[in-house]
Design a protein around this nucleic acid. Sequence first.
RNA 1: GGGCGAUUAGCUCAGUUGGUUUAGAGCACUUGGUUUACACCCAAGGGGUCGGGGGUUCGAAUCCCUCAUCGCCCACCA
Length: 876
Amino acid sequence: MNIPSKFDSEASEDKWYSYWIHNDYFHSEPDHRTPYTIVIPPPNVTGILHMGHMLNNTIQDVLIRRARMKGLNACWVPGTDHASIATEAKVVQRLKEQGIEKSDLTREAFLGHAWSWTHEHGGIILEQLKKLGCSCDWKRTKFTMDPDLSESVIRVFISLYEKGKIYRGHRMVNWDPEAQTTLSDEEVIYEERQGNLYYLQYTVVNSNEKITIATTRPETILGDTAVAVHPKDERFNHLHGKKVIVPIVGREIPIITDPYVDIEFGTGCLKITPAHDENDKAIGEKHGLEIIDIFNANATLNSFGLHYEGKDRFVVRKEITKELSEKGYLVKKEPHLHKVGTSERTKAVIEPRLSDQWFLKMKELAQPALEAVLDSDEIQLFPKKFNNTYRHWMENIRDWNISRQLWWGHQIPAYYYGDGNNDFVVAASAEEALQKAIEKTKNASLQLSDLRQDPDTLDTWFSSWLWPISVFDGIRFPDNEEINYYYPTNDLVTGPDIIFFWVARMIISGYEFRDEKPFSNVYLTGLVRDKQGRKMSKQLGNSPDALGLIKEFGADGVRVGLLLSAAAGNDLLFDESLCQQGKNFSNKIWNATRLIQGWEVSEDAHQPLYSKQGLEWYEAKFQSTLVEIEDHFSKYRISDALMAIYKLVWDDFCSWLLEIVKPPYGSPIDRISYQKAVYYLEQNLKLLHPFMPFLTEEIWQFLEQRTPDKALIVSQWPEMKKFDKTLLKNFETSVSLVANIRSIRKEKNVSFKEALSLVCLGDSYAIPNLEIVQKLGNIDTVTFVNEKPSKAVSFRVDAFEFFIPMTVGDVTEELEKIQEELKYAKGFLTSVQKKLSNERFVSGAPEKVVAVEKQKEADALAKIATLEASLESLKS
RNA sequence: GGGCGAUUAGCUCAGUUGGUUUAGAGCACUUGGUUUACACCCAAGGGGUCGGGGGUUCGAAUCCCUCAUCGCCCACCA
């Protein structure tokens, strides 16, 4: 069969992807083999593929394909996450566009809309992953709101509640006024913003004295219930126990003393608003202050806002500043840089708000997870520097606010039967809840209709933290075959941005629910940035269209482009030229195949010595590279592994081996060399396959002569064998000779077509791979002499001198070249001798090191002698 | 405010516990190339006082101190 002259990536991608699917190569079932498992970081169900996903999933695919070829039972579980806030926000948005408010809908009706949105957009991203070539076990696709996974979440909630780990608390939480829900601490991003520090005067009751407080949020004075000063701040001693009047509101509030106040900051007087600041709340509790909440859920002011009622907090900030100024309360306003908490999802400014929420106690749960990473090394993070980040978070872990005021998600299985703080039970169903409620209250007359389920849902991460367990149904059936076989999984590939959200919590849940780690290694990728180092974002429009790239450069090209410069944990500055490089590489491999395929094989032809030498060398080269590659993989240095293969294929295989083996024009190739060339091409394809699955499968299937494996995807990864290192060393000498000859051709303008002679000084020097040198240098005769030829250009390899006879008009150039070499050699010798003449080096350094230095000295001396002799003969 | 990590060729990065050439790779660059796989190519080249300063050592890109710049994470200073 003839191979087409161009590689058609698009056609190949569709063809081989369907072929793999059709043959069920991605599917895994427990068997006698050792499992190798990866669970995908589930993307948002309605999300679309971006560069981060591409990088992340390419790495996973490389790992899983390689594992598959190594004979492991490779299982990559795909799936999606319901992403409560993000999805609910999108659905609310869409409804708004249709003129429907969420508040107009019943919970059931809203969920109906959310599900249809999910069905409409859900899974698009999984289809996109297929375009990339991801070999996920699609039959195992999971969604965090699948019935089995949902049931697992509810069970876990109940079990933690029963263990006393989950409690309901009235706390200051992070309120997102846009999504109108609370957020966990991790979902709040602090941004530095330019604001103002407002200095406001409060009049002391029954006095003309005024005190000045400083605040960044003048609108919150409406909720002030005290002014605090430091007990040791003598400026305010006379005011202890007095009261002041809050401007505009006219409320009298006490002056209290608390060491929390920083004497140095602002005026040393701090207004206390317990409803809207966590510290103020603490001080308020300590001093028994009144709590006045001035905001509605959407951060407009409520009736405590007086004439500002109904207006947004930021509008009020402006307007109240004006009023305060007009009425003379505002002393001054100065610019002030401070951090503002914003919502990770909606970007809205977070409002600290007091409310009843569900919390998970973390301190004890975190302990085994902390030890697994930092003490026992049961779980390793790559790169290791993230251990510190991990430690810091785990050691300072705070209780996790797991309730969200959303409808899209897992509804909290708590059922209220009364209005008291404790009038609820936690149960898997309403019926069960009724039983429990009756037992608890001893009130047999309770009806289902008396129960009211908590309207809140659980934080999305409260379901994804179970992912490695729940996808194998290990929560509901802790002893099932699948969980026992696939768990713990092997590698997790994700971004460092979700190390707390997800990675740490999965480790926690793994130990809590399975008493075992969820995975052994965590590969943390970097962020994909644009060429200028900016984060890729929709607003900047600097995020390339993922599928467009695949179309332009081929999935293989894009994969290679992404991986070439993606060291673990390092951000990747993405540039399309990287994909171009990947595409060029595809082209190179394709053409190498075409070359080999085009050879005519002769059964009679003898194998030339150069082919034999070349193939023997390549065997050694391949093996030494394989060692290197395995080492890179073991350290998760994926890009280094790829680069090693890239050089092996491009330089060693194409530029050297194929040029060596290539038969002269018009001649056929001998059978042995041909078979070996094809064999090594196949070996190369195996190494390449995890990185470039489509191209390699296409070529593999083209080759007539094949190893017994049917498809490359399930072929066997090359075995490591012993190899002869001297072959490599000798070949380097040959390479050096060839390079020198080529260099001389270029300098002297001698065409490659013109054969040259090579003269070697000395009679017994065995030039390694002489036949190869002759072929690649186009050398017709080689002679050994004891006298330097008079008309020739020279070069030196190791300590030996070679000549290429030719009429040299001007010896100046030759002289300069030798002098240059001499200068270098002498400089080198000096540095070596400096070391050797140092008494303390000779006595202090290890013997081996000294011996090496002595050898260097001897070599340099020999080379200098040669060069000087050459100079002499040229000058004479 | 605290912690962590970086700083090596024009760009992106290697450089393993200090010692194999006077520091490497890929890309880019320069020069030459219509040889019968590939110009998405071939060949040959140029390019770095390893951020600055100080120290330890026989020997430092590598260890210590210090300064500078950048990045990330964490933290309740109004």
